Simulated scan of single mutants.
Amino acid sequence: MHTALVCSGGLDSVSLAHVLASQGRLSRIVSFDYGQRHRKELDFARACALRLGVPFHLVDLSGLGAALSGSALTDDLAVPDGHYAEETMRVTVVPNRNAIMLTMAFGIAAANGDSAVAAAVHGGDHFIYPDCRPGFTDAFAAMQRAALEGYADVVLDVPFVHRTKADIVTAGAAAGTPFAQTWSCYKGGARHCGRCGTCVERREAFHLARVADPTEYDDADFWQAAVAAHAVGGA
């Protein structure tokens, strides 16, 4: 099965790239510039494609962020600190982001004769992002079957949709993922901040997976307080 992977350059998608490559299934990497403030992640996606020897497609949707306003990822809004599964993190939603990107990726896959499009959405995303939930991925897969009926047979592969971030770290480690060559932080600074939701989730995932975290953080210990605060708040 030839699989086109939607890859941000983050831990999840780069890990999935290495998993697919280890299975001989990765055919190309597709990334998107949608005007995200942390667009440095795209350098990591490009490096992943080069490392794994597959074509890299960078789709310019740079005007999208301005059109889909109101997100801290695209507007001049502060990225909040704290645990990912907090109400404050909803400001990082870019409406319909995955629906738009996956639609483009399916077109690229169909045009190049691929049989699948993969995305690394996972259970930890469900609280905040509606277009990472199983209800969305199931419906999107059905829509694409109709959209390409009679032209191409391309399926949606979301192997982590019911799994945790720690599970992804475990799978990525088994496939030899160079975790230091991934970028998660939404603030897009010189180093991972260690305080935003995606940094906290990343740090916690390595801890739960019992895998050494090679990431350099500006605040490497903040995650513990954030996790503890979330546990109290959710009790």
Rank of each mutant, 00 (worst) to 15 (best):
W223V: 11
S71D: 01
R133P: 03
I108L: 11
V93S: 04
Y129F: 15
G123R: 08
D43E: 06
A111F: 02
A105H: 12
I108D: 10
A139D: 03
R39W: 03
K40F: 06
R133D: 12
H192Y: 04
R37E: 13
N96A: 12
D213P: 03
F206Q: 01
A139W: 00
M101L: 15
F32D: 03
Y84N: 12
L52Q: 05
L208W: 04
N98V: 14
R28G: 02
A228F: 12
A180K: 07
A4Q: 08
Y129R: 14
E86I: 00
H18P: 01
D131C: 10
R97Q: 02
P130Q: 12
D76R: 15
A85P: 08
A119G: 10
A226V: 13
L156H: 10
H18A: 03
G63T: 14
S184V: 09
A226H: 12
G9I: 04
A118L: 08
T170S: 14
A146M: 00
I29M: 10
P80T: 13
V158Q: 05
D153R: 13
Q144R: 12
R28A: 13
G24T: 05
V30Y: 07
A152P: 14
M143W: 04
D219I: 10
C196I: 08
G24M: 01
I168R: 02
R191K: 00
F136W: 00
F44P: 00
L73Q: 02
R202H: 15
W183I: 02
A174S: 13
A175D: 04
S69E: 00
F140H: 15
A220C: 05
R25E: 15
G35D: 12
G189M: 09
L208C: 08
H126L: 02
R195G: 01
S184R: 05
C193A: 09
R46H: 06
V200H: 14
A66V: 07
A111Y: 11
P130H: 00
G82A: 03
A173T: 15
L58K: 09
R25D: 15
P178A: 14
G194A: 05
R28N: 07
R37I: 06
A205K: 09
F44Y: 05
F56P: 13
R46C: 02
K165L: 06
L16V: 05
M89T: 06
F56S: 04
A235D: 06
G123I: 08
Q23M: 01
Q36F: 13
A229K: 14
A4V: 07
C48D: 04
Y151L: 10
F44Q: 01
S115W: 05
